[in-house]
Computed example of a mutant assay.
Amino acid sequence: MHTLDTSDLSKLIACPSCDALYSEVRPGHGRRAVCERCHTVLISPRRNAGLQVIALSTAAVILVIGATIFPFLQINVAGMSNSATVLDAAMAFAGGPLLALSLAVTALIVLLPLIRLLLILYVLTPIVFDRPPARRAKRAFRMAEQLKPWSMAEIFALGCAVSLIKVADLARIEFGPAFWMFLGLVVIIVVQDAFICRWSVWKSLEERRRP
């Protein structure tokens, strides 16, 4: 980043973590602009990153849908077995006073990640294919960024891992297709977030709206 120049406020960029201000300078492909104070990545353009994010988001949407339909795991104990999907586990208390908790769990591990992925596809697809931004694309991308801390697929995976370790001594556990889909989903979401250059997305939305 270069020395701060306040003559043109539109050319400033603020660090989302510590609010430090810098003059906006686009680094070359494969290079990154990093905050000198907290080392947060501010700009990280990559070639064909948009296509890669679209492909990853599409795969993640398919995995989210599959992970809610197919069995997540099967437990066998004393000659009896039972299988459950992610939605079965999330809605286990739907019929009682913990209905709000069940709905919250379902939203955090299924609905919010799915909505965020669809919003990213809605915003990036026209930009990548050199078309005008979709209607209210800025609002959609802002909402996708706001949903990021609340999309807790990886937290659910970690909680399942801890629970399965404790249950393994009491019963035989078999992982269903949804379990592996969910693991793949967590990996894809992490890679996708690493590929998205938010500065580039905002810049594209602003430039393509200009007459």
Rank of each mutant, 00 (worst) to 15 (best):
D88M: 04
V162K: 12
S57C: 09
H39A: 04
V162T: 07
A144F: 04
P27M: 03
E24G: 05
P16I: 08
V123Q: 00
V53M: 11
P16W: 11
S7M: 13
A178F: 14
I69E: 07
K138V: 10
E207A: 14
C197K: 01
I65A: 15
D5M: 03
I173F: 09
L9K: 13
A104P: 15
R37Q: 06
K166W: 13
V186M: 04
G28R: 12
L42V: 00
P126I: 07
I43L: 00
F70A: 13
T58P: 01
R142C: 14
E24P: 01
I188W: 02
V41S: 08
I155H: 07
R46M: 04
S102V: 01
S57E: 03
M181E: 00
D19Y: 14
Y22E: 04
L42A: 04
L114R: 02
V123L: 00
R47F: 12
T68Y: 06
K138L: 08
L124R: 00
L147H: 11
N76Q: 08
L63F: 13
V187C: 06
G95S: 15
R116V: 00
A33N: 09
D130E: 06
L147W: 07
S204T: 09
L42D: 00
I62F: 15
R208A: 09
L147S: 09
N82K: 11
A67D: 03
E145G: 12
E24I: 03
L4F: 15
P133L: 15
A14G: 07
A67W: 02
M143Y: 07
L12W: 01
L103S: 06
P149A: 03
A178S: 15
L51E: 10
V191W: 12
T125H: 03
V123E: 00
M181C: 10
A140W: 13
A100S: 06
M143G: 01
D193F: 12
A171V: 02
L98S: 12
P113T: 00
M1W: 11
V187N: 05
V186R: 02
S57A: 13
H29A: 11
P97F: 09
T3Y: 14
K11V: 06
R209P: 02
G30E: 06
L103F: 14
A161C: 09
T125D: 03
T3V: 14
P113K: 02
I109K: 07
A153E: 00
V123I: 02
G176H: 11
M1N: 08
I196S: 01
I120G: 01
S204N: 08
M181S: 04
I54K: 12
I127R: 00
I188T: 00
R31L: 07
L56P: 03
V191D: 03
L119F: 02
P45K: 13
T3W: 14
V41F: 14
A59M: 07
M143F: 12
L119E: 01
P45I: 09
V34E: 00
T85K: 08
A178M: 09
I62N: 03
I62D: 02
K138N: 04
N48C: 09
A20S: 15
P133Y: 13
L56R: 02
R198G: 06
R135H: 09
M91Y: 13
E24W: 10
A55D: 01
I75P: 01
A90S: 02
F195N: 05
H2V: 08
G184I: 06
Q52M: 14
T40H: 07
V105S: 05
F195M: 10
D88H: 10
D88L: 08
C38G: 14
S44E: 05
H39I: 04
P211M: 11
V123F: 00
